[in-house]
């Protein structure tokens, strides 16, 4: 009994007659989370977690037809029992569980096991078939704990203050920016680029408390941010906008920064391997905890991860999807 079909429009649930994170316009789309490569424009109807609803409104449009749902609230769609479960990737991110005639399939979207202090913590869901990402599916990717990462980011800011520099963090505006905000709160005034502010407000409207920050309008003077902390989206790197910031040094926050060559390639002053994706050990842990017999591997190190699973007694199948491969590209294009 096949529940999922992998089509050129996206992942399709055959009996449920809906798609998950489709990349072409369809009638009914279930959305795992609000990043642009998973939540796209043009669907007749959307279903996502409550906390993702305002994000879709901001990013796709206020007039879309979207319904919110909570975690662990099963509903019936054309005879398929569907429920959303925390994926720990960003606020509102969900794994989607489908049960039909005794068979359970879970599509996990993007996820991480680490507790980032903002998103609801990842919850393992038992299933027969599991669809997993593999963005960082190589054993060189091992994240430090959130506490350790926060500490090294704080130390960087303090050192910059000592030498009279302004600390600029680069992270995508939905999820990463808020994590950074949380990590470096209360050591210096924090300013966020307005595209990030917009999403901060969506978070706050959803009842999530964020540390104090001020919105920064780059069309006006930004001299007052000197020696403070500025958070900007990746699209601003290598633009003149960044150069307006006085005494600027900048750090890229992304899992790719684990590798020295990637840090140097981006010629940033610093790089922090802060990721909203699971690292190698956690990918394996997540897969094992589902007890799945068959694992579909999407975006990232698909070939590597599928091969490793096969060598370790789990059937791994490589899948080609249109989901983003680059942690830094996950947000929609943002500029001034």
């Amino acid at each position: 009994m096949q529940i999922l079909n992998f089509t050129d429009k996206g992942i399709y649930c055959i009996p449920g007659k809906f798609y998950i994170d489709p990349w072409k316009p369809v009638d009914y789309a279930l959305i795992t989370h609000g990043h642009a490569d998973h939540a796209r424009w043009g669907m007749k109807k959307y279903l996502c977690h409550h906390l993702t609803v305002p994000i879709l409104h901001i990013r796709i449009g206020a007039d879309i037809q979207v319904q919110g749902i909570g975690y662990n609230e099963p509903i019936n769609i054309n005879g398929v029992k569907v429920s959303f479960h925390p994926a720990g990737h960003i606020i509102g991110s969900a794994q989607i569980r489908m049960e039909y005639k005794g068979k359970v399939v879970v599509v996990s979207g993007d996820y991480k096991l680490q507790n980032d202090g903002l998103s609801t913590v990842f919850e393992p869901v038992k299933c027969h078939e599991f669809v997993t990402e593999s963005t960082f599916g190589l054993p060189i990717y091992k994240w430090a704990s959130t506490e350790k990462l926060n500490e090294s980011m704080q130390n960087w800011v303090l050192h910059n203050q000592e030498i009279g520099k302004t600390s600029v963090f680069v992270g995508y505006s939905l999820g990463k920016a808020q994590r950074i905000l949380n990590a470096v709160s209360s050591i210096a005034p924090i300013y966020t680029h307005y595209s990030i502010t917009k999403l901060n407000q969506a978070y706050e409207n959803a009842g999530i408390q964020l540390p104090h920050y001020e919105s920064l309008d780059f069309r006006e003077s930004v001299q007052h941010v000197n020696k403070g902390i500025v958070i900007v989206p990746p699209s601003l790197v290598d633009t003149n906008v960044l150069k307006k910031i006085p005494n600027m040094v900048y750090a890229i926050c992304s899992g790719w920064m684990q590798v020295r060559g990637a840090r140097r390639w981006r010629s940033a002053d610093a790089g922090f391997a802060v990721s909203d994706h699971a690292d190698w050990d956690d990918l394996l842990k997540a897969v094992k905890e589902t007890n799945a017999e068959k694992v579909y591997v999407t975006h990232g190190q698909t070939a590597v991860f599928a091969k490793y699973l096969n060598e370790n007694g789990i059937e791994g199948v490589e899948l080609h999807t249109a989901f983003g491969n680059d942690e830094e590209d996950e947000s929609t294009p943002e500029s001034l």
Partner: peptide, 9 residues
């Protein structure tokens, strides 16, 4: 793929 600064490309 290159090494050093250009690893990954």
């Amino acid at each position: 793929k290159g090494s050093g600064r250009r690893s990954g490309y």
